[in-house]
Structures are given as C-alpha cells and as structure tokens.
Amino acid sequence: MARDSREQQLIELKDTVKELNTTIKNLNALIEAANKREAEHLEKEKVLQEQIEYLTKKLFGKSSEKRDDFEGQFNLFNEAETLMAEPDPEEQEFTTVEKHTRKKKTKMTDKFANLPVQKVLLDVPEDERICDICGTPLERIGEEFVRREIEIIKPSLKIIEYYSVSYGCPKCKEDAEVPHIVKGRDDQKHMLHGMASAGTVAWVMYQKYVNCLPLYRQEKDFKMYGAEICRGTIANWIINNAEDFFRPMHEYFQRKLVSGKYIMADETPVQVLKEPGRRAETKSYMWVFRSGEYDPEQIVLFHYSPTRAGQTAKEFLEGFHGYLMTDGYGGYNKLKDCTRTSCWAHVRRYL
C-alpha cells in the first residue's frame, strides 16, 4: 500500500516537472518575443530620431552651403596637422598673451567731426547791457557753451531755366552784309533724359537702391515738395540714364574681367512682370560674374537673360582663357577656351 502511494507521488512529481518545463519553455519564448519587439522598437525609434534631426536641421538649420567641420571627420586640407601626435606637455612652449585692451569710446566731437558747425550766440539785448547798480554800460567778458543741436535741412525743389545771351556788333549791323552775333554756350552737354538734373537723377537712384525707397513713395515726396512727378517719369529717368551712363562702365569692366585669370559665375532665377511675349510665371535668370577672390581689382557684374541657356555665359565671357569656377550646371560646358573648375561646397550634393 505504501509502495503504491510512493509511486503515485513520483508520477505526480514527474507531471509537475513536465508542466514546469513547459511553462519555462513558454516563458522563454515570451521573453524572446519581447526582446525582439523591443529591438524593433529601438530601431524604429532610432530612425524616427534621425528623421526628426534631419527635418529640424532643414527647418531651422543653415540654408547656406558653406561647409563646417564635422565632429569625428578629418579636415581634407589639414589631415597631416590633425594626425600629428600631440607634443609632450613638458616640452610645450608657453607664450604670454598680452592683456586685451578695450576699444576707446568715440567722443561726441569725433562722431560729428565731418559736419559743418554753425555758431549761434545768445546775446543780451542792447537795452539790458547797463549795470543795474551804477548805470555803467556793460562790456563783453566772454561766452559760455549752453547746448548742441542736430538740425536736418529737408530737400527742396527749384526750377533752373537756362537762357543763352546773345551779343551783336552794332557797327557790323549797319555796315556789314551779315551782322556778327555771338551766343552764350552751355559747356556741359545735356545728355540726361527729361528735365531732371544730374543731381536729381543721382538722388532718386540713391533713394531707390540704397535706402530701398519705392518709386511710389518718392512720388509722394515730390508732391510734398510741390512738384507733380509720377513714378513712371522717375522710372524713365533711372532706366534711360543708367542705360546711357552706366553701359560704357559695364562694358569696360567686362573687358577687364575677361582679360583676367580667374572668374566665378552663377545664375539665379528671377521673375519679371509684363515682359513682352512671356508670361509673368515664366522664369528669367540673373547671371552674376565676378573676378577672383584675391585679384587686386574686385569686379562683380550682373547680366540679365530670359533663359538659362549656356550660350549666355559663352557670349558674355567670349575671349576668356583662364580658370572658371562654377557649380555643376552643364550649361557652362559651352565655354571651350577656358579651364572649368568646380566648387567644393557643391561636392556634398553628389555624395
């Protein structure tokens, strides 16, 4: 009887061990599945974090293609210096840096040294230049500085009319067959368009391109000064006079640029409104050409073209035989007489 009970207990223990082994096996499977899911989640989290960093950099990072040194990446040009072993601290030479001196503050007299000064005397009226005690006339004994003011003299308009004065010989008028008449001449040739003087054209150009004052606001200024001059007239002053006076300068600098050894070029899309034969949405291009960074004469020229065709660069740089620095745009391949060089800042586009 006792033997049967021990066998029964042994059988129950074996069943318990078997159940426990099955439970352990199931738990190990669950743990393995959980570890696998955790690894997948970590991988997804890593990818999402990289996407967040990339989008954050695109949204808030630099838009310039200027290259910065990245952590852990050797500099291409300073590799030898980067890999060179650091010297022993005991062998290092120490240099003493001089104490930094703060820049002196600009004095008031230095800030306005180039402005004309008008001296105003706060004089005593003549009827008060008598001593109240003894009645003796007062004598000037000196002057004392009171204050300093900055005054703006607003622009004003005036019309200048030129008349040629004529002179005739009274004797030749009576005796000669043809009277002798001499007229006053204008030594300066008037090449300007319209009534605007050279100073007026220079002023509207300065207001437009230096102070960024639109022509419609300049029109209001002219009206406030007492002249009804519409913005279309002002625009004609700028365009026509720039065409006549600046084109020879542009052509001269273009010849200087082409005769140099280095040229950099690029093109930027612009939108031109009301261009004949083209829609307002059509892209036009402003080409920029400049001399080498270390050339003694720095030249920067802009050239407008309705298209991005490489023929534009070929015609503008005709006769150039030096080194041309551009991006990877294939339109510059039309220039056969020069050596093409590429910009390092654009290399990363292809990596």
Rank of each mutant, 00 (worst) to 15 (best):
E19Y: 11
A196P: 10
K171D: 11
H190E: 15
Q51A: 09
R102D: 10
W344E: 07
L257T: 03
V146S: 10
E53Q: 09
E161T: 07
A34R: 11
Y350L: 07
V178T: 06
I239V: 14
E38G: 08
G199K: 00
Y262E: 09
L20Y: 12
R348A: 02
E126F: 04
Y216P: 05
E161M: 08
K18M: 10
N75Y: 05
S284G: 12
R3G: 13
D110H: 06
K261A: 12
A113E: 08
M205D: 00
I11T: 15
L42F: 11
S164D: 08
T106Q: 07
F112A: 03
K62I: 12
L115H: 06
H303G: 02
K104L: 09
M84A: 15
V165N: 11
E7P: 01
E43T: 13
L215S: 00
D266A: 11
E12S: 12
T23A: 14
F77Y: 14
T339M: 11
L83A: 05
Y252T: 14
R148D: 14
M191A: 15
M195S: 15
K57L: 08
T339Y: 09
Q118R: 09
S197M: 04
A34C: 03
Y304P: 10
E174D: 05
E297F: 05
D175N: 13
T339L: 03
I11F: 09
D175Q: 04
Y350R: 12
Y332C: 03
S164A: 03
L192P: 10
E151V: 15
K58W: 03
D132H: 12
K208G: 00
V204A: 02
K107L: 14
H41M: 15
R231E: 14
Q8L: 13
S156I: 06
V182G: 00
E275H: 01
A39R: 10
R279L: 13
P125R: 08
Q8D: 11
D187E: 15
R340W: 05
L76W: 07
T22H: 15
Q92L: 13
K189S: 13
T339Q: 08
